[in-house]
């Protein structure tokens, strides 16, 4: 599987944005993964090794899971199939190869520590306490 490739791409993108924003550390990375991306939880295992020695080391990984939905051309409606990879309309039983949601693999955003436009409002920057590989939920 290519979780490690994805984890590296993710970290690389986050590092890139951190550099451009003049931040020294990324404290949180938020991603959106469709159930068809087939990686979900396994990304947690690859995430920590991929962050080693980068500005993302120690960052928390948040994964938002997007369920599968398909468009049934016959019912003209968006439906939720009974099972993953069962691309049939649960109502009429016809094939529904048009996937509407569930294939997402997106970097939603990152939280930065340090750099320009650092948080003001009198609150001291805290060291990130949470460790990578630990789901936020």
């Amino acid at each position: 599987m290519h979780e490690l490739t994805l984890a590296r791409s993710l970290v690389e993108m986050a590092v890139d944005y951190a550099e451009r924003n003049g931040a020294t550390r990324v404290t949180r990375i938020s991603v959106r993964l469709g159930v068809l991306a087939g990686i979900l939880r396994s990304l947690y295992f690859c995430f920590e090794p991929a962050t080693k020695g980068t500005r993302c080391e120690g960052a928390v990984l948040d994964i938002e899971e997007v369920p599968l939905s398909v468009h049934c051309g016959y019912c003209q409606e968006i439906k939720t199939p009974r099972a993953l990879y069962n691309f049939r309309c649960p109502t009429c039983g016809r094939p529904t190869p048009k996937v509407v949601t569930g294939r997402e693999m997106q970097l939603v955003g990152i939280e930065l520590d340090g750099g320009r436009a650092a948080p003001a409002r009198g609150r001291p920057a805290q060291a990130p306490a949470a460790s990578a590989g630990e789901p936020a939920r």
Binding site: Y17, D62, G109, I110, E111
Partner: peptide, 13 residues
């Protein structure tokens, strides 16, 4: 998930 959490600066990508 997808929400900013703490003291840092949130960058939406």
């Amino acid at each position: 998930p997808g929400e900013p959490s703490g003291t840092g600066r949130w960058v939406e990508i």
